[in-house]
C-alpha cells in the first residue's frame, strides 16, 4: 500500500460520498472526504493528494471556485468534476475552471473508476521529468511546467493546463514525431467528445505563443497525416 494514490473526495451528499469512498478504497486508493469547498482548500494546503473528485454545488466555497483556486497554484493537479449539472454550458464552465474531466450525476460506477484511472495515468506521465529542471528553455523562450508560466515570442504569460500538458508531451519527445492519437490519449484521455481537430486548434494556439511566424513554424512542426514534432 506504499504506492497507493491519495484521492480527495469533495462531496456534500453524504450518501454519495460514502459510496464513492467505499468503491475507491476497494480499488486500492486512500480516500479522504470533505463536505465543503473551504475544508477542501484547507486540506489541500496541508496534505499532498494525487487527485480530487469535486462536486460543484458545495456549501461555503463552490466547486468552480475551488478548481480555480487550485489551478492558480498548480496547473497540473488532477481534478475530476462530478456534478448533477449536465448542460453543455455547465460542462464548459467546469472545464474552463480547470477540471481535467467532467462526469454528470447519475453516473456509472465502472465509468467513474476508468476515468479516475485515466487521469491518474496522465498525471503519472506528466510528473516524469522532462529536463534536468522543471523550466524548459528554447530559443530565448522558456516554459515552467510546474506553474504553467511561460515566456513566448511576445512576453510572459500563463499556459492553461491542457496547453501545458500538450507542450510537455511534445517537448518530452523532442525531435520525434508524436502521433495525434497519442496526444489525444495523454492530454484528453480519449474523451469521446474530443475531436482530433481539437489537437490542431491547440497546436495553432501554441504556435501563436512561441513562433515568430506561426504560418511557417520553427519549433512545432506538422507532419501531414502523422502528427507533430517539437524541433529543438
Amino acid at each position: 500500500m506504499v504506492d497507493a494514490k491519495k484521492i480527495l473526495v469533495v462531496e456534500d451528499e453524504s450518501h454519495l460520498a460514502k459510496g464513492l469512498q467505499f468503491n475507491l478504497e476497494r480499488e486500492g486508493y486512500i480516500v479522504s472526504l470533505v463536505d465543503n469547498g473551504e475544508s477542501a482548500i484547507e486540506l489541500l494546503g496541508k496534505q499532498p493528494f494525487d487527485l480530487m473528485i469535486l462536486d460543484i454545488m458545495l456549501p461555503k466555497v463552490n466547486g468552480i471556485e475551488v478548481a480555480k483556486r487550485v489551478r492558480n497554484k498548480d496547473i497540473r493537479f488532477p481534478i475530476l468534476m462530478l456534478s448533477a449539472k449536465s448542460s453543455d454550458e455547465d460542462r464548459e464552465l467546469g472545464l474552463e475552471a480547470g477540471a481535467d474531466d467532467y462526469l454528470t450525476k447519475p453516473f456509472h460506477l465502472p465509468e467513474l473508476l476508468l476515468r479516475v484511472k485515466g487521469i491518474l495515468r496522465r498525471w503519472e506521465w506528466y510528473k516524469e521529468p522532462v529536463h534536468d529542471q522543471e523550466v524548459f528553455h528554447f530559443g530565448g523562450m522558456w516554459i515552467n511546467f510546474v506553474n504553467g508560466r511561460a515566456k513566448g515570442s511576445s512576453g510572459e504569460f500563463y499556459l492553461t493546463a491542457k496547453e501545458a500538458l500538450l507542450m510537455r508531451l511534445l517537448v518530452s519527445q523532442k525531435d520525434n514525431i508524436v502521433r495525434r492519437e497519442e496526444l489525444l490519449e495523454k492530454v484528453w484521455g480519449y474523451d469521446p467528445q474530443t475531436e482530433t481537430r481539437t489537437v490542431d486548434n491547440f497546436v495553432a494556439r501554441l504556435r501563436k505563443y512561441f513562433e515568430k511566424k506561426p504560418q511557417s513554424p520553427r519549433y512545432i512542426i506538422t507532419h501531414r497525416e502523422k502528427g507533430y514534432e517539437f524541433k529543438s
Partner: peptide, 28 residues
C-alpha cells in the same frame, strides 16, 4: 428540481452498481 432529483438517484445507482460489481459483505 432536476438537480434535487439527480442527487438521490445518483446515490441509489452508485449503491446498486456497487452491489453488482463489488464483493460486498452482508453487513455492508
Amino acid at each position: 428540481v432536476s438537480h434535487e432529483l439527480k442527487s438521490p438517484l445518483a446515490s441509489i445507482q452508485l449503491y446498486l452498481e456497487t452491489l453488482k460489481y463489488q464483493d460486498v459483505s452482508k453487513e455492508d
